[in-house]
Computed example of a mutant assay.
Amino acid sequence: MDFSSIINFEGFSSLVPLVSGAIIAGTVLGVLAGLIGPMIHARDLAFAVHGTSELSFAGASVALFLGVSVTTGAVAGSLVAAVVLGLLGVRAKDRNASIGIMLPFGMGIGVLFLSLYKGRSSNKFGLLTGQIVAVDSTRLTTLCLVAALVALALAVVWRPLFFASVDPAVAKARGIPMRTLSIIFMVLLGLTTAMAIQLVGALLVLSLLITPTAAAARVTARPSALCLLSIVFAVISAVGGILLSLGPGLPISPYVTTISFVIYLVCLPIGAWRRRQGWSRRV
């Protein structure tokens, strides 16, 4: 097997300046994913990310077919999923059932409109696997604005949201508006997912929103360290995926997913060693 077709740094220095916008977008999205990832982890919403991404994919597919902004369609689809899950998904059982219903529906609608679309096949493929290397100034501006909005909103609701996530019974007894917080967070998650599918596509969005935080959770339990490590791991995965894909000219999503998975594998033994050390100290 010729590995140069997968890993190739020929002409690398000349290619990097051509994707400076994509690298900025990958960095911003990595920070955004790292910020929201710990809350996804705390609220056990990995399945919700997948369901939201399918509705975002459906919205983007419809927009592509109609000839309007794909970003707008992706955001619209994500927001529909977010509101539905926020309203119906206060209890985990109800939430998972809602996601299980919406997920195949969103994928079916997306596949339908991609099949009806008669334009370039690369546009179809990009919705599934990402196409951030072709990011333009408009998409980059939109991504930065959405990232700033999500980061600001998370800063405002972080403490009550985290409290409601780790101890919902006590939080409800103290009068914290559980349903309102659920809807707010799901909207923020929907916006983040809509931006993420433009990097890694609808099929592999979990690699950016879930895996970095899962890796960080293996080596630390402190919320601040978990958030910082999630950001670092997500940025490495996103930017590293972009850089590694340049030489071969392949979609970036396999590289992003591989890097994030390798980070997770490295964190597994580190976490096991830390737990053994902690146990030995207690004994």
Rank of each mutant, 00 (worst) to 15 (best):
A151Y: 13
G175L: 09
S165V: 02
R174D: 07
A153W: 00
L145K: 08
A171H: 06
A155F: 08
S165Q: 03
V146G: 01
L161N: 05
V146I: 15
P160F: 04
P177L: 08
R179T: 15
L143W: 09
L154I: 11
A148C: 07
V157F: 12
A153P: 13
A147C: 12
T142R: 14
A151F: 15
V146T: 12
L154G: 10
V166N: 01
V157G: 07
T142P: 02
M178E: 13
V150L: 06
K172L: 11
F162D: 02
W158H: 10
V146Q: 00
L152K: 01
L161T: 07
V157E: 11
V156E: 04
A151P: 03
L149C: 09
P160D: 04
R159P: 11
L149Q: 03
V156S: 03
V156C: 02
A153C: 13
V157P: 05
A147S: 15
A147E: 05
A148G: 14
A151V: 02
P168Y: 02
A164E: 12
T180M: 11
A147H: 03
L161W: 01
W158S: 06
M178H: 12
W158A: 08
L149W: 05
T180G: 13
V150I: 04
C144S: 15
F163R: 10
V157L: 10
A164Y: 12
V170W: 01
V156N: 04
I176F: 00
W158E: 04
A148F: 14
V150H: 03
T142L: 14
C144E: 14
P177I: 07
F163Q: 05
L161F: 03
R159V: 07
K172C: 09
D167S: 11
F162M: 07
M178C: 03
A169P: 01
T142K: 09
K172S: 15
A147K: 06
G175A: 10
R179S: 12
V166Y: 00
A147W: 00
A164H: 11
A151L: 07
V146D: 00
L152Q: 02
V170M: 14
A171T: 10
W158Y: 11
K172W: 00
R179W: 10
A173P: 03
D167W: 01
L154Q: 09
V166F: 01
F162I: 02
K172D: 15
L143I: 04
P168E: 14
A173T: 15
A171R: 12
C144F: 12
P160N: 06
A169S: 11
V157T: 08
L161K: 02
D167N: 14
V170L: 14
L145Y: 13
P168C: 08
F163G: 02
L143C: 13
L154D: 13
V150Y: 00
C144R: 08
D167K: 14
S165N: 04
F162K: 08
A173V: 15
V150F: 00
R174I: 01
A155Y: 04
L161M: 12
P177N: 11
C144T: 10
V156H: 10
